[in-house]
Amino acid sequence: MKLISTAAVLIGALTFGTAASAAEAGPTLASVKSKDKVVCGANGGRPGFSGIDSKGQWQGIDVEVCRAVAAATLGDAKKAELVKVSSQTRFTALQTSEVDLLVANVTWTYSRDTNLGLDFVAPIFYDGQAFMVSKQLGVKSVSELSGATICIEPGSTSEKIVADIFRAKGMQYKPVVIEDRKELNNAFFSGRCDVHVQSTSGLSSGRATAASNPDDYVILPEVFGKDPMAPVVRQGDAQWRDIVNWTVYAMIAAEELGITSQNVDEMKKSDNADIARLLGAKDELGKQLALNNDWAYQVIKQVGNYGEVFERTVGKGSPLKLDRGLNRQWVDGGLLYAPPFN
């Protein structure tokens, strides 16, 4: 029995050693390297998350995640290509390999995770659904909205939330279904709808960028449901899922460890084992994902940590001026938490 146990231990050690050695590129990573770019599906009509600025450049927190994956896999954040997708086309674009991943404000739900042949990775933004109205309506609560005309994006979490809430309250509503986010905002702010429904961040984004006078509109205080927004990848390629997952975690861990795009070169000399391991100065974590050992360093150097990205895209340094709220680090009472890099 002792001989069998020893053999089993030796076999296990050899197996682990093989798994921890340099991995070969899986199908998605191989495709990314072959075309020398990471193609991401994004909304394109949600400023702060993914939108196109006056110079024709993509901007937003979702866009930065795509750039971070490009920095991790190709060493160059500029090798991220964004493709506009709608709530109706986004999953098909990923399923048919038109894009390598989705960064399109997709809410992680049970049905989406189990029915579409897709995998969600670490959430990059935690939110909930809310209702926005003109102050002129004098409405203080969703319970006062029976009979209202509501602007809704088809196939969205908002569509389901509205149906569930109004059914539960025994209220009626008139949906105005518009697929394009820009047209949806225009319809609401032009008075075609009484109510606009999205995540609180989406409503804040629309109010800040599409309303002629943002102060004329109020987001009602009730927040419904959980809205964890996460990048999405195809099932069947565990390596690519891990790459995207740990790229997000690298940005989160960097903020917790005090590593920024400005001090990352100095921090690479740190005696702190966690910092050295993350930045590739200790151990060889990159090999396990078929990446260069400095993959996380490139993410932080070229894109920044999570806090830096949040502030310039949706936080106080942006037109949205959103509070961190649930998107604070766990040590500050938020939900952001990166597993250990060891």
Score class of each variant (00 low, 15 high):
A187E: 09
G117A: 05
A211H: 04
S190E: 09
T6M: 08
D283L: 12
F189K: 08
F341H: 09
R241F: 12
G45S: 15
A130R: 02
I4W: 12
E24T: 15
K35N: 14
T18H: 09
V177C: 03
A72Q: 11
F120E: 02
N342F: 12
G147K: 02
P231R: 06
V69W: 04
L335P: 01
F188A: 05
L145T: 03
Q136E: 15
A71W: 03
R277P: 03
E222I: 02
M1F: 12
F224S: 00
T6P: 00
D100T: 10
S31D: 14
T28P: 00
N327A: 09
A68W: 00
F131W: 04
G155A: 14
A13D: 07
F131E: 05
L336G: 01
G45H: 14
V233G: 01
I124W: 01
N105K: 03
T15M: 13
L289M: 14
R241V: 12
M251Y: 03
H196V: 11
A187G: 13
E153G: 07
V303T: 09
C193W: 04
A168Q: 10
A168G: 05
D294C: 03
I161M: 13
V142P: 11
C66A: 13
K282T: 10
G170A: 08
T313E: 07
P47N: 08
R328N: 15
V162R: 02
V9I: 15
A296I: 13
I4L: 15
R90D: 10
Q88D: 08
K78N: 15
I150C: 00
T247V: 01
D215R: 13
V176K: 13
E183Q: 15
G60M: 00
E98M: 12
A187Y: 11
A7W: 06
H196L: 15
Q239M: 11
R67Y: 08
W240I: 02
A253F: 04
C193H: 03
A168L: 13
E24M: 12
I252Q: 04
I161F: 01
L184M: 14
D271F: 08
E98V: 09
A254P: 06
P47Q: 11
V197H: 06
L279P: 02
I219S: 04
G128N: 13
L279Y: 02
S205Q: 00
F125V: 13
A290F: 01
K174I: 06
L322P: 10
Y110T: 13
V248G: 01
I275Y: 07
T28L: 06
F189W: 08
V248Y: 07
T157L: 10
R46Q: 12
M267I: 07
F310G: 01
N105D: 14
T18M: 11
L145H: 02
T89V: 11
V197T: 10
K2N: 14
T260E: 00
P221D: 04
F120Y: 10
P228H: 10
E256N: 14
D36F: 09
E311K: 05
Q288K: 15
G304D: 00
G147Y: 03
F341D: 06
C40L: 15
D215Q: 14
E222L: 04
V63T: 13
K301N: 09
F16M: 10
N115I: 06
R181W: 03
D62F: 04
R181T: 15
P339D: 09
A7G: 11
T200P: 00
V162W: 01
S54C: 02
K301C: 10
A254Y: 01
E64M: 00
E222F: 00
P231N: 05
K282G: 05
